[in-house]
Structure formats: structure tokens, C-alpha cells
């Protein structure tokens, strides 16, 4: 069973063992509007927590996704390249962006759980 975490950058992080799958929250997709393009990281690339790792674009905006945790990129959701609308349709499942092999599990402590994220969003 995976544990779900969130960041202040409106990313969700689903952790299963030492693997984390990353995507953006429904709140983020509502703010962005229609997503028209997604740029994914190269597989095998090593990232540090906070690095710009992917790009998500709507018609009039471009935003970066930051790596929520340090580690190695082990997969990317290539289906998004041809169907970026998936992120709008199903942000927290089929609309995932990439997965990381977690280098340092202690970094999880800096992420929010669902409850904390919900109240964070309410405060915006």
C-alpha cells in the first residue's frame, strides 16, 4: 500500500518502498487550466530535491515541476507527450509525470500528508 504525500508546489508523491511516483494535484490543474504540453525528464537522470525536473504548460503559462525528493529518475509517463489532456482528466492517476528511486527517505519528513495539504490549499 502506497503512502501519499504532498508539496507546497502542488505536487503529489506516492511512495511505495523506495520508489516515489510524482504528479500534480487537481488543485494545480484547476489553476493551470487546459494543459497543452508536458516535458518529461530523461530516465536515468539523478535529481536533488528542489531541482526543476519537468515542465507543464497551459496555453498562456509554463510552470516547472520540482523534484520532491532526491534520487534517480526511473520512469516517465510518455503517454502524456501525445495526450497532455490526461493531466486534466485524471491528475492523480493516469496523469502521473515521473517516478524516482528515492535516495534518502529522511526527506519524506519535509512533505505534507493529505490533511496538511488540504488545509494548506484552503489557506490560499
Amino acid at each position: 500500500m502506497a503512502d501519499l504525500y504532498f508539496t507546497e508546489e502542488h505536487e503529489w508523491v506516492s511512495v511505495n518502498g523506495d520508489t516515489a511516483i510524482v504528479g500534480i494535484t487537481s488543485y494545480a490543474t484547476e489553476q493551470l487550466g487546459d494543459i497543452v504540453f508536458v516535458e518529461l525528464p530523461d530516465i536515468g537522470k539523478t535529481v536533488k530535491a528542489g531541482d526543476e525536473t519537468a515542465v507543464v504548460e497551459s496555453v498562456k503559462s509554463a510552470s516547472e515541476l520540482f523534484a520532491p525528493l532526491s534520487g534517480e529518475i526511473i520512469s516517465a509517463n510518455e503517454a502524456l507527450e501525445d495526450a497532455p489532456e490526461t493531466v486534466n482528466e485524471d491528475p492523480q492517476d493516469r496523469g502521473w509525470f515521473f517516478s524516482i528511486k528515492i535516495a534518502d527517505k529522511s526527506e519524506l519528513a519535509s512533505l505534507m500528508d493529505k490533511e496538511a495539504y488540504d488545509s494548506f490549499v484552503q489557506g490560499l
Binding site: V36, F37, E57, S58, V59, K60, S61, A62
Partner: peptide, 12 residues
């Protein structure tokens, strides 16, 4: 495709 352009992407 204007997200490539300066009026949206600015320094990027």
C-alpha cells in the same frame, strides 16, 4: 505554442 516566447517564458 506561445509558451516558448518571451512574453510568457521571460528569461527562459
Amino acid at each position: 505554442l506561445s509558451t516558448r516566447e518571451q512574453h510568457i517564458r521571460r528569461e527562459k
